[in-house]
Write a protein that binds this DNA or RNA. Structure first.
Lengths: 216, 216
DNA sequence: TGCAGCTCGGGCAAATTTCCCAAGCCGGAT
DNA sequence: ATCCGGCTTGGGAAATTTGCCCGAGCTGCA
């Protein structure tokens, strides 16, 4: 089955770019103990491939910040809790990293990492350990220093505006509700984004949701 | 306790504006059978007030589209399933109305309704019936005609773009992922909003979430 | 007293959104 | 066969919003 300790570590590659998969495959295969037993080019197929090949480690690229990558992780973990998933992506937002681990990932490595860091991470998660690249560690460390919850970075006004915004209110509506100028609300909006590190309004909304600021 | 059928209907008023509460109170009290036994000026205090006075009907103004009003409803209903809650607000989005009923509200009346419609709604929910003002009924009717799930209105591409957007991806990122021009994605974005009736990106995100398109 | 942080808003260039429109494609209806 | 309608893809132009930078008033704290 997957007790391939003697023969090495079997890997499922999930990435939407064939070229990238080729690169991965080459790097991994050159290690001797790592064997790419399957590939998938989208998150949706990931579980099928996983079930079919039962790899020791899934190396997954969530190219998009939010959804389907995380979904794939949850998908796999929900039905095969012993699955080890290493996320390998170019994104490095603390929120995303936490989400990934929260979804059940065992490791998180950025694309800017050394190949050696990647293969070590694969070996680590195969051993059941948690792994992450140095830059990710720094991001998380930085993040944990400055925040209990992300909300702690925000003032009252900011929180109120975030709540209303995430609740679906227009900038103008918020300005009216709070008796502020539209400009001020816009500035808060921007401030909140920079403070929380959200690059997108959508990320802001899910941030508010995960912090319990709004229910969905 | 709350078996006040002989003495009329006891009401808890929840609204953040004292003036508005005064107005409500005056209107309700003038009816003879309606008695305002308590008030709360925020969603958070609503449950405390409810528990303390056990009113027949809670009249609740969720001034903000999304969150804390719905939370209050769930809060009350979760611990006192026999509670009757009448939402009274200026918002009239179909999504919001459904959410309110989904959260456990018994009625939904807009601020533009006649006072008589409001008091009738209160009596109706007190009898255990469902109640809503005419405009709300129209909105919901309109909405139900055109939609099974909101997603049925959307094509594949639209759904995919909505998913990625709600997941936190930038317009440009989506364009890259799907190999489309930024312009096209922008147009889809706009189209999706008009089709779903979402006025705000945030509403779009929570729409995607409630439809199971994205997890949060 | 003085610094630091929150709140509030102006300014302005750059980017995005909002609508409206056009064209190709395809499937179903006539 | 043809036409209609809907999906997909994008251009164009006006209207808004964003991204940053700045200043001012206020409060609390050292």
């Amino acid at each position: 089955m997957s007790e391939v300790a003697a023969t090495g570590i079997s890997v499922l590659l999930v990435d939407d770019h064939p070229i990238v998969r080729q690169g991965y495959r080459r790097v991994l295969e050159s290690q001797g103990d790592l064997h790419v037993v399957a590939e998938a080019d989208n998150a949706a197929d990931a579980y099928g491939a996983f079930k079919a090949h039962d790899p020791d480690v899934v190396v997954l690229d969530i190219s998009m910040p939010g959804a389907s990558g995380l979904e794939a992780i949850r998908n796999i973990r929900a039905r095969s809790p012993r699955a080890r998933i290493l996320v390998f992506t170019m994104h490095n937002e603390a929120v995303l990293v936490k989400s990934a681990f929260g979804a059940g990932a065992s490791g998180f490595v950025t694309k800017s990492s050394e190949p050696s860091a990647v293969v070590n991470a694969i070996r680590a998660v195969a051993r059941g350990e948690r792994a992450m690249s140095d830059d990710i560690a720094h991001i998380l460390a930085e993040d944990s220093l400055s925040s209990g919850s992300v909300l702690d970075q925000l003032g009252e006004r900011e929180i109120e505006i975030l709540r209303q915004f995430a609740g679906g209110a227009t900038t103008e509506e918020i300005a009216t509700h709070l008796n502020l100028s539209v400009k001020t609300v816009q500035n808060y909006h921007y401030l909140i984004k920079t403070k929380t590190g959200a690059r997108t309004d959508a990320q802001l909304v899910r941030l508010a949701a995960t912090c319990g600021l709004t229910k969905i």
